[in-house]
């Protein structure tokens, strides 16, 4: 098995050098009441080597489904209906099954969840769980994992001995989230997936967790995917942003470009809806309407039109295709923006 992985690890599987993971035409559906409902529709994106790519969207946008699909961990009643997810050095994962997949998860790709306490065993001490993790991945020296965890803990200004001998309920929310990140990093994965890593935290804990992620990512050049609904977190951390709405990518750009020149009306309203400390409070506008549910996403035309201030006739029937801007680094799918700039 490990021999097979090393063989593969040198292969690029047709990816260009700056791309760590390529997602192509990914469709994920959930079977609800006899109907197949799409959670992700034709999602294509490149996750760049050594960068932090953020996926931003509201509840129901499919962002958490995307995180699961990246690990081929979508579970019933959902399934990956079509599409490919290809990693440098690992290959295509949507076709992988069982043991092959298990080896990859945690070792090559690892995930930090929103509520880290849910992914920890409440009845076992943190240290013992780390040892279990190391053993389940057949590491030659499980103790080294504890050492690594201790180092990470100290870097996160946690008392390493205390944390490793604690049960999860003995830690505060911010500490648990950091321990969740230790779990994510301790096996030295190539790719780190983080699903809402700071949502349950207050601003102070959030900002220190973000700082930790930032410094470790820089140091290890760790390819990171950050799933969130909070543009503030994106702005603090991400190099690139993919905006997801109703299961579709509607815009993608570098973070600074996206914040400064958002093209899609949805992205623009997302940024305008952030409560800020500066500027006239009257300038902020709430995003009208509600995010669509799986069942209410229109099957044709633009998915955002119901809440869009610039809705046109063409939006009802024709799905806008991507337009590229800024050397092809910025893409968006909007009829109105397209018409405005032509």
């Amino acid at each position: 098995m490990s021999a097979k992985l090393t063989d593969r690890s040198q292969q690029d599987f047709g990816l260009s050098p700056e791309v760590a993971c390529q997602v192509r035409d990914l469709n994920v559906t959930y079977r609800v009441d006899g109907r197949e409902l799409s959670a992700l529709r034709e999602v294509s994106l490149d996750i760049r080597q050594g960068q932090i790519t953020a996926v931003i969207g509201e509840s129901g946008s499919g962002k958490s489904t995307l995180a699961l699909a990246l690990m081929n961990a979508v579970s019933s009643p959902g399934r990956i209906a079509s599409g490919r997810v290809t990693y440098r050095g690992l290959g295509e994962v949507t076709g992988m099954r069982g043991e092959e997949l298990r080896r990859i998860r945690g070792k090559a790709i690892s995930m930090v969840f929103q509520a880290s306490q849910n992914s920890m065993n409440p009845l076992t001490r943190i240290g013992a769980q780390l040892l279990d993790l190391a053993r389940s991945h057949d590491l030659p020296n499980p103790r080294a994992v504890l050492r690594e965890a201790g180092d990470l803990a100290s870097r996160m200004s946690l008392d390493a001995d205390r944390v490793l001998t604690s049960y999860q309920h003995q830690l505060s929310g911010g500490m648990r989230q950091r321990v969740g990140i230790i779990f994510g990093l301790v096996l030295k994965p190539e790719i780190l997936l983080m699903d809402e890593p700071t949502t349950a935290l207050d601003v102070l804990s959030q900002s220190s967790v973000l700082e930790i992620v930032r410094s470790i990512q820089r140091e290890r050049q760790l390819t990171t995917v950050l799933i969130t609904h909070d543009m503030g977190v994106v702005a603090e951390l991400a190099d690139r942003v993919v905006v997801l709405y109703a299961g579709r990518v509607v815009e993608e750009a570098s973070t600074a470009e996206l914040l400064r020149h958002p093209r899609h009306p949805y992205t623009r309203s997302l940024i305008q809806a952030i409560p800020r400390l500066t500027g006239d409070p009257g300038d902020a506008k709430a995003l009208e309407g509600q995010p669509p549910s799986l069942a209410s996403v229109p099957n044709q035309g633009c998915v955002f039109r119901e809440r869009c201030p610039y809705r046109m006739d063409v939006c009802e029937t024709i799905l806008p295709s991507f337009r590229f801007d800024g050397d092809g680094e910025h893409r968006f799918a909007c009829h109105y923006e397209e018409a405005r700039h032509d």
């Binding site: 959030q206 503030g232 600074a256 914040l259 400064r260 952030i274 400390l277």
Partner: peptide, 14 residues
């Protein structure tokens, strides 16, 4: 000051 500092900065706009 710490609480206010911890608010995310919209880099690019701020």
């Amino acid at each position: 000051q710490a609480l206010l500092s911890a608010m995310p900065v919209l880099r690019g706009l701020e």
